[in-house]
Amino acid sequence: MYIPPAFRDDDKESLRATIRDARLATLVTATAEGLLATPLPLLLDENEGEHGTLYGHVAKANPHWRAPPLGDGLAIFMGPDAYVTPAWYQTKQETGKVVPTWNYVVIHAYGPVEFFEDADRLLEIVTRLTNLHEGGRASPWAVSDAPADFIQAQLRGIVGLRMPIARLEGKRKMSQNRNAADRAGVVSGLLASDRPSDREVAALIPS
């Protein structure tokens, strides 16, 4: 990923926070059949390995898991993003030398990909993922709420994924390359937007 110095995010906690907050990732692997990509929720185990380990699962019918990866896999986690119109820049009024851009946060995690079918490991991952995403609900659903034989049948239809993170790249492009007046204009413009994601980006732009 191309990362100009002004946009590089090397803070370990910031990187992990973006991974935790991303509700859906994209797993990409290079294979003899070409590039394969699957959107899926991934769980970060921060206590396993230097950079943590990612866990998830794919449908057994998905051919992705049957194609051996050539080298490391790539998990892409997108954070907030927003279009930035040059009309918000003070520089537009001063020189007119401005163009549109996009502000965004993204994490690329690289590592060896392991697929597995062990039922006990699958149940653990499904349970952890469920607890993660149900945790904030008033009446959270649990895997144990469903009949055990039904869950076992469902597990036979998925394949687990484990990816120890060997390398992390973080990019936080939030108008850091613009002057203070231009950044203030971007914040004002995004805060006036009807899109919640735009307002989320506004809060991340440095003053």
Rank of each mutant, 00 (worst) to 15 (best):
residue 55 Y to F: 15
residue 135 G to T: 07
residue 153 A to D: 08
residue 58 V to D: 00
residue 134 E to I: 11
residue 132 L to M: 12
residue 109 A to P: 13
residue 72 D to M: 14
residue 99 V to F: 03
residue 122 L to G: 00
residue 49 G to L: 06
residue 89 Y to R: 12
residue 170 G to V: 06
residue 64 H to V: 07
residue 27 L to I: 11
residue 3 I to M: 08
residue 157 G to P: 04
residue 2 Y to Q: 10
residue 121 R to Y: 04
residue 205 I to M: 00
residue 45 D to T: 09
residue 101 T to A: 07
residue 33 E to M: 05
residue 36 L to F: 11
residue 138 A to L: 15
residue 80 P to I: 04
residue 41 P to D: 09
residue 100 P to L: 04
residue 82 A to W: 09
residue 50 E to W: 02
residue 32 A to Y: 00
residue 152 Q to Y: 06
residue 71 G to D: 08
residue 86 P to L: 13
residue 156 R to S: 12
residue 71 G to H: 11
residue 120 D to C: 03
residue 57 H to Y: 14
residue 126 V to G: 02
residue 108 H to W: 11
residue 12 K to R: 11
residue 105 V to I: 10
residue 7 F to C: 06
residue 133 H to Y: 14
residue 67 A to F: 03
residue 149 D to P: 01
residue 69 P to Q: 02
residue 63 P to L: 12
residue 146 A to T: 14
residue 123 L to E: 14
residue 85 T to Q: 13
residue 2 Y to A: 08
residue 47 N to D: 15
residue 116 F to R: 01
residue 162 R to I: 00
residue 107 I to K: 01
residue 192 A to Q: 12
residue 132 L to Y: 05
residue 154 Q to K: 11
residue 149 D to T: 07
residue 51 H to V: 02
residue 32 A to P: 05
residue 31 T to M: 00
residue 73 G to S: 15
residue 86 P to R: 14
residue 40 L to T: 15
residue 92 K to A: 10
residue 26 T to G: 03
residue 9 D to Q: 15
residue 124 E to A: 13
residue 169 E to Q: 11
residue 7 F to M: 06
residue 144 S to P: 11
residue 194 D to W: 05
residue 2 Y to T: 01
residue 47 N to R: 15
residue 4 P to H: 03
residue 109 A to K: 06
residue 158 I to Y: 10
residue 14 S to F: 12
residue 23 R to E: 07
residue 150 F to W: 09
residue 25 A to I: 05
residue 86 P to D: 11
residue 193 S to L: 06
residue 51 H to N: 10
residue 162 R to D: 02
residue 167 R to D: 07
residue 134 E to H: 12
residue 124 E to D: 14
residue 184 A to Y: 12
residue 150 F to M: 13
residue 170 G to A: 10
residue 177 N to W: 02
residue 141 W to F: 14
residue 191 L to I: 07
residue 108 H to S: 09
residue 194 D to L: 14
residue 181 A to D: 10
residue 163 M to I: 12
residue 97 K to V: 10
residue 35 L to S: 13
residue 152 Q to G: 00
residue 53 T to Y: 00
residue 13 E to S: 15
residue 161 L to H: 02
residue 143 V to K: 05
residue 179 N to Y: 02
residue 162 R to N: 08
residue 40 L to R: 05
residue 143 V to L: 11
residue 74 L to E: 01
residue 164 P to K: 00
residue 112 P to L: 09
residue 138 A to Y: 03
residue 155 L to H: 01
residue 99 V to W: 01
residue 16 R to S: 04
residue 86 P to T: 09
residue 59 A to H: 11
residue 175 S to W: 00
residue 95 T to Q: 05
residue 122 L to K: 08
residue 168 L to V: 05
residue 80 P to F: 01
residue 158 I to R: 13
residue 36 L to K: 06
residue 77 F to P: 04
residue 24 L to W: 07
residue 204 L to Q: 03
residue 153 A to I: 03
residue 77 F to E: 09
residue 25 A to D: 11
residue 142 A to C: 11
residue 151 I to F: 02
residue 189 G to F: 10
residue 81 D to F: 02
residue 151 I to G: 07
residue 143 V to F: 00
residue 132 L to T: 10
residue 127 T to L: 04
residue 91 T to G: 10
residue 59 A to Y: 06
residue 136 G to R: 13
residue 204 L to G: 08
residue 73 G to H: 01
residue 30 A to T: 10
residue 54 L to H: 02
residue 100 P to T: 02
residue 152 Q to W: 04
residue 61 A to C: 06
residue 25 A to W: 00
residue 142 A to K: 15
